[in-house]
Simulated assay, not measured.
Amino acid sequence: MSNYQMNENTLILVGCEGNSEKYYMEILLEADKLVFSKTDLFEEEILEKTFNQKLGKYLESSVLTMDFGTRDVHLLLIQDNDVSLKIKALYKEKLNMIVKVITTPEIEMLAIHHFGLFQKYTNQKKSNWRKPSKFLADEFGMKASRIKSKQFIKATFDGDCLVTAIKAYASKNKQKYKGKDDIRLVDILK
């Protein structure tokens, strides 16, 4: 199913836009649902910093200063379509590939599919339209920050139901992305 290509010599850096994306990726990684495993990742984990925590600076100062020998280094960015990560050219040269894994409009669309709320979400009136996290928060009577929390995400999803939600969303979202290397979460599933 994967559109993402790697080999046994690939070292993968996975950077996430925010903590929500990181929690979803951790579930997929732990459940062995991705085309890569922990052993393919830098330090066998998703990068500790997110875009909101200055991921670009972290890569430049702590990761891309290292010698990776002959390994192909791929940076997978789990993000909305409109986010741009800034990395100086000197450090970008160490990356064989930068791939944006797009979660547009928001990664919370996965929870909308999981809870069977896609039709209700798409039927919102334009005058009262809410982004996915706000829609879910209103549906469940909680704050949007709770919908994005590690506790909520990990209590809601295991690997199998998360894969089901990703596939459901991919079947509804046929959007083309800007970059030639842009892919969707479904493209990195086994």
Results as ranks from 00 to 15, higher is better:
N52K: 14
D67C: 07
E139W: 03
M109C: 13
K100E: 01
K94E: 07
K150N: 09
K174V: 10
T50Y: 01
Y4Q: 00
K143E: 12
M142P: 00
D138I: 05
I188C: 02
F152Y: 13
M25F: 13
I183K: 07
E45C: 08
I12Y: 04
L162M: 05
E17V: 04
N81G: 06
Q119V: 12
Q175V: 14
N52M: 04
I98L: 06
D40M: 07
N173E: 06
K120I: 05
P132I: 11
K150W: 00
Q5M: 10
M97N: 11
I183Q: 03
I87S: 09
K154I: 14
A170T: 07
P105W: 09
T103P: 01
G179W: 04
K154N: 09
S84T: 14
L95N: 12
S127Y: 01
F135W: 02
R184T: 12
T103R: 03
M6E: 01
I112A: 07
Q119S: 14
V63Q: 02
T164G: 09
R130G: 02
S62R: 11
P132V: 11
E17H: 02
L85A: 02
E44L: 04
S149E: 09
K22L: 03
K178Q: 14
E108V: 09
V163L: 05
N52Y: 04
M6S: 09
Q175Y: 02
K100P: 00
G141D: 09
N123H: 12
M142S: 11
K38H: 08
L59Q: 03
N3P: 00
N52Q: 10
F68H: 02
G69A: 10
E93V: 12
I112L: 06
E106A: 15
T70K: 15
V163R: 10
Y24M: 01
F42K: 08
S37M: 03
N9K: 13
A155R: 15
M97Q: 14
I147E: 04
G56E: 02
S133M: 04
V35M: 05
V35W: 00
I166P: 02
T164N: 15
Y177E: 07
I147Q: 09
C161N: 15
D32T: 10
T70H: 13
K167I: 08
D32M: 08
K150T: 05
D182P: 03
K125H: 10
S37G: 07
N19G: 00
L41Y: 00
V83Y: 04
S61D: 13
K154Q: 15
D80Q: 06
